[in-house]
Design a protein around this nucleic acid. Structure first.
Lengths: 331, 331
DNA sequence: TACCGCATTGTAACCGGTTACAATTTCATT
DNA sequence: AATGAAATTGTAACCGGTTACAATGCGGTA
């Protein structure tokens, strides 16, 4: 494999001149540069980027921690990350972590071992906690409380409030909630928005209508089963993801219920399939690609040592009303 | 940032001994190793992996070229890649290419510039063509003809044949086909399987029933519109992806047709949503994660210079019959 | 012609590891 | 105690770039 010294020899100049011809051409006379470029061509020379990165102590790699790439919402965020990173000259090291702390800590070591300049986390977990000062990191999707890093997201509480309120305005009084996983701030925020909307309307929150889920269609399907079995069935369900909403709709239909005739279902995220199922889903649309774009922009600012990087960035969401929600059945 | 020389000084040994204590502990006496490990601890030393990679000329990075990460089938393949790569000590550089040759060639340079050891391509395009000898590369998903590299996939022709035959056996005579994008070998193979099944049953292929698509729900939706407008509407449709099948089903239902009562729809891939829509999709299940696993295994073999790496690997598919296909309506 | 300043080019140190080879130590054997 | 092989450790070159600093070349001016 040809290196800079071979090129220097071929061109009859020093290695420094070769390096400068490629990196800072304005420092080299046009005549010399032409000689060098010709030698580069003849030698089939490609700079060894590992050497460059090693020498410059800057890898131009970004680590992205994603719980599961098979989630279409995350896929959109990643597309945004990828696109912006590419434009800024960064490569993306994508890590599928299944939401496991241990795996995330493991991948986070890519930064500590200087294989990457920074990290974008899509989940509310700090893989560096207790490890000294946090390296450049940004959180996309979730707005953390007392975050150790800048975050990008929507107003989850407000969005869920709107979604719930939409159902209340349609006359629903018993409204169930199928939650996201664990006790992530995201789930907490959405739960809070739901509760607040009920309270504001003077409705009682029935703990039996508060079901756990994990963002997969299957978990929505299972949760729906519980609701149908419930003595006092709700007339509407808010789901914290479209995937779960799709699973729930499917269970209701299999159980012989009409959506939205007998029960209204709302989702969250507005994934592409949301408008291609029957009935098309009422949901909250999030600017997922922009999450990725902004997250990369913030991260690069941190990496480049910019001061006062915006700590929280709240992007706009949008309530999208489709046909899965309708007036509550008149008992 | 502490380096190996600081540790050596702290431990009172040479840098070589520090290096050996970490990389080949059996070459160092237990007593010395203990001293070194203690010094490593005290110095908070983390080896600079960029230096290691640069020196060893092996990056342990793999580039993955994916047309769009937002496709749940590709997402599964990537999960398989990721998992296997991780176990083998490789990191994955994920590149969303939107199926554009130029972007792919660009990312492929990550290998030529020695930022990665090899590349996994999910599309039928050789980003190195005309660039001298092809670096380590493997193609997952598509079985190329005269491939420049090992490939992993299913028997697309056979699978589509089975799927079409299933519809024929249900009594369908007019069967439409919504195709994949462009003239990829994958699309060609599937088209061929469809044609062969028709021929074998003595059916005429109507070119009007042969519609273009691009794997998205929207393209399936649009293609379905053409079919419904057609004077002599088909009674069944084979789609080359579940996404398109879901879009098609949605259009048929909006147009007042019953699926499968009036028209049967079959998909391809068996994505997670396939069983969570109404009606659940008849489809071909592919071992997507295994594509990724096997592709990585083959690629590592190539990288490590193993000879006679299996050139084509055909994995088993499975016809999954659900409720979106049924007997043809009796005129 | 001698001298100065600027543009261009060359020399060599450096980044942080790995490893070939040499030097030293250890320890069983004679 | 002397000997020698094996185990352990040290020295220094090396990977392929970048860049500080020194050296050289060139044109213009006194």
């Amino acid at each position: 494999m040809s290196n800079i010294r071979k090129v220097a020899e071929l061109a009859g100049v020093s290695v420094a001149t070769v390096s400068r011809s490629l990196a800072t051409p304005e420092m080299v006379s046009p005549k010399t540069r032409a000689k060098v470029l010709d030698a580069v061509e003849r030698a089939g020379y490609r700079p060894n980027q590992m050497a460059v990165k090693f020498r410059s102590q800057r890898t131009h790699n970004l680590v992205v921690l994603v719980p599961t790439i098979a989630n279409t919402f995350y896929a959109r965020v990643i597309s945004g990350i990828q696109e912006t990173a590419r434009k800024a000259g960064y490569s993306v090291l994508l890590c599928n972590t299944q939401g496991q702390d241990e795996i995330e800590r493991d991948y986070a070591r890519l930064v500590s071992s200087r294989q990457a300049d920074g990290i974008i986390q899509l989940r509310a977990f700090n893989p560096f906690s207790g490890d000294g000062p946090t390296p450049p990191m940004v959180n996309a999707c979730e707005l953390l409380d007392n975050a150790p890093c800048p975050t990008v997201g929507i107003d989850n509480r407000g969005a869920t409030y709107e979604l719930t309120r939409h159902l209340i305005e349609l006359g629903h009084r018993r409204i169930a909630m199928i939650q996201g996983p664990g006790q992530s701030p995201l789930t907490r925020e959405r739960n809070a928005g739901y509760q607040e909307a009920l309270e504001a309307a003077g409705l009682e929150a029935d703990p039996d209508l508060f079901l756990p889920g994990n963002f997969t269609p299957r978990s929505g399907f299972e949760a729906a089963r519980h609701l149908v079995d419930h003595a006092n069935r709700p007339t509407a369900v808010v789901c914290e993801s479209d995937e779960m909403a799709i699973g729930a709709v499917q269970y209701f239909k299999e159980a012989g219920l009409r959506v939205p005739g007998d029960i209204s279902v709302a989702g969250f995220d507005d994934i592409e399939f949301a408008s291609f199922i029957d009935p098309p889903l009422t949901t909250i649309s999030q600017p997922a690609e922009r999450f990725g774009q902004e997250a990369v922009a913030r991260l690069i600012e941190v990496i480049e040592g910019k001061r006062d990087v915006t700590p929280h960035q709240t992007l706009p969401h949008r309530l999208v009303i489709r046909r899965s929600t309708a007036a509550a059945p008149t008992r």
